[in-house]
Amino acid sequence: MRLHREGYTIMITTGLVLLALDLLAYFFLFSDNTTAIVLLVIASLILFGLIVQFFRVPTRELTFHESQVIAPADGTVVVIEETSEDEYFKSNRRQISIFMSPLNVHVNRNPVTGIVRYFKYYPGKYLVAWHPKSSTENERTTVVIELANGVEVLFRQIAGAVARRIIWYVREGQPVHQGEEMGFIKFGSRVDVFVPLDADVKVKIGDRMKGGVTVLAELHK
């Protein structure tokens, strides 16, 4: 396991602030109260540990298959439905949504190999990730990847009430590979994946996903 570079500044800043508060308490507030100092240090370590775990990147054996759509994020499947995708396709697609809690790994990965045909970033609101309008009103990105056989897969990074910064590493025209890091949502949120209606969905609502590992759907030309 390693720690993601997106967390370096936050982890260092948090560590320094907590250390300063603990030293201030030790020398000026609770210098004669050992119990209070111990409890404060324990609370600081727990808080720092929670911040660090947000940015963990576990070592995994990734899944690679040219006709499969792999989960772009850790989390729980909360939506599987046919819906109208009106931003890019302007037609019906099968939507699979993965909710990322603050305890999940927050790295996002390319679900397929291909060329980025469309990318758009939208600033927006910070509704809770399960709100029906979060997919269209929250801060988000939309990415469309075209596979070698011409099939296109769209997915969105969506910020939530806690996550307020989306990071991405892709651009239009860029070739990308399945399983590579394509971005990061700080402190969790949601990822929506849109596949063709004839794709065979391999997951069900409530299933827990491992980004880069779990197969979401099988594609057909």
Rank of each mutant, 00 (worst) to 15 (best):
N138I: 11
Q174V: 01
E180T: 15
R208V: 14
T83D: 10
Y88W: 13
V195D: 09
F194K: 04
E137Y: 10
V193M: 05
Y121N: 10
A217Y: 08
I96A: 08
G188P: 06
V143W: 03
E139N: 09
V112G: 04
P102V: 15
A163S: 12
V144Y: 02
E82R: 15
G173H: 08
E87S: 00
T142G: 01
W168M: 02
A159K: 03
E139H: 00
R171D: 13
V116I: 14
V201Q: 11
I115E: 04
Q174K: 13
Q157K: 05
V144F: 08
G183N: 14
E218K: 15
E172Q: 15
R140G: 01
S134I: 06
S189V: 08
N108M: 01
N92M: 11
G206I: 14
V176D: 13
T142M: 00
M209I: 11
G212F: 06
E82W: 09
K120E: 09
G160C: 01
N104W: 01
H106C: 12
L127V: 02
R117S: 14
V201W: 10
Q178N: 07
F184C: 00
M209V: 11
T141Q: 00
I80Y: 07
K204H: 05
F99G: 04
Q174P: 05
I158K: 00
P196A: 10
F155C: 08
R190F: 11
M182P: 04
G160F: 03
K133M: 05
V153W: 02
T113N: 14
L103F: 06
Y122V: 02
T141P: 03
E172L: 10
E137C: 09
Q178R: 07
I115H: 03
S189N: 05
Y126V: 01
I185K: 02
P111T: 04
G179A: 11
E137M: 14
N104L: 03
R93D: 04
N110W: 08
L197N: 12
I205L: 14
G114S: 06
G179D: 09
P132Q: 10
I185D: 04
E218M: 12
E172K: 15
R165V: 09
K202E: 15
S135F: 03
V153G: 09
R140V: 07
L154S: 03
I145C: 00
K90G: 00
D198G: 08
I205T: 15
G188W: 14
K133V: 03
G173N: 08
I205N: 13
R171H: 09
P123G: 07
M209N: 12
D198L: 13
V112F: 07
V215W: 08
A163F: 06
T113C: 14
R165T: 02
A199E: 05
R208C: 10
G124I: 00
S134A: 15
V143F: 06
F119I: 00
S189T: 04
L103P: 04
G212W: 11
Y118S: 05
V128H: 14
E87L: 15
W130S: 10
Q178F: 03
M182E: 03
